[in-house]
């Protein structure tokens, strides 16, 4: 008998009574102004929010936010200042040393500042390896909470997606909060019309 069938039959023998699935109807918190809540949560988890004004140029805006950036990585067609492309990079490793990575978020979550980022580039390392991460997020795409979020997420064939809320952080040394553990040290969400 394979280990799988051994384990499954051991489980069957152990289960005395099968409990029913509960009704998952959570009377969840919603917000009068989900965008305002999303912005304030993003700040409280250490991120920054900037709004792209109508008529402004996204490349100029990013430049002004990171005037010293040399290596900029993005596979988004509208990002013309990119010096690296995660779609054509020879290896994931060669994205190391990226000053600013720019990716697209599908929607944000008001309760906890999560932004859903499905993998759309060949090497998703750009989301983590970059010193600073910029997420372009449509301003109207904000849901209240994770219940709504999990009803909305979808995957493409690359089979990976992540919710990101703020920059990488740790408090593992003496419980002192430090931004920039192993992944992006800063996070800016740019709200686009």
């Amino acid at each position: 008998m394979s280990t799988k069938s051994q384990i499954l039959s051991s489980l069957k023998n152990s289960i005395k009574e099968r409990f029913p699935m509960p009704d998952i109807q959570i009377d969840a918190t919603t917000y009068a102004d989900p965008l305002a809540q999303f912005i304030s949560m993003t700040k409280s988890v250490g991120g920054k929010v900037v709004e792209l004004q109508a008529g402004d140029d996204i490349n100029q805006l990013i430049r002004s936010l990171y005037p010293d950036a040399k290596e900029i990585a993005s596979s988004l067609p509208e990002i013309t200042i990119a010096t690296r492309n995660p779609d054509t990079t020879p290896t994931a490793q060669s994205l190391n040393g990226t000053d600013v990575g720019i990716v697209r978020g599908e929607f944000g979550v008001a309760e906890n500042a999560c932004v859903w980022i499905p993998q759309t580039m060949k090497e998703r390392a750009v989301c983590f390896i970059s010193e600073n991460l910029v997420i372009l997020l449509p301003k109207a795409a904000i849901v209240n909470n994770m219940h709504e979020a999990y009803r909305r997420i979808s995957f493409n064939d690359l089979g990976y997606g992540t919710f990101i809320s703020g920059p990488s952080k740790t408090a593992d040394i003496a419980q002192v909060l430090v931004m920039g553990a192993q992944a992006a040290r800063t996070l800016t969400v740019i709200l686009i019309p």
Partner: peptide, 8 residues
């Protein structure tokens, strides 16, 4: 309110 990353 959440971990920074919730990856699937």
């Amino acid at each position: 309110p959440t971990t920074t990353y919730t990856s699937h």
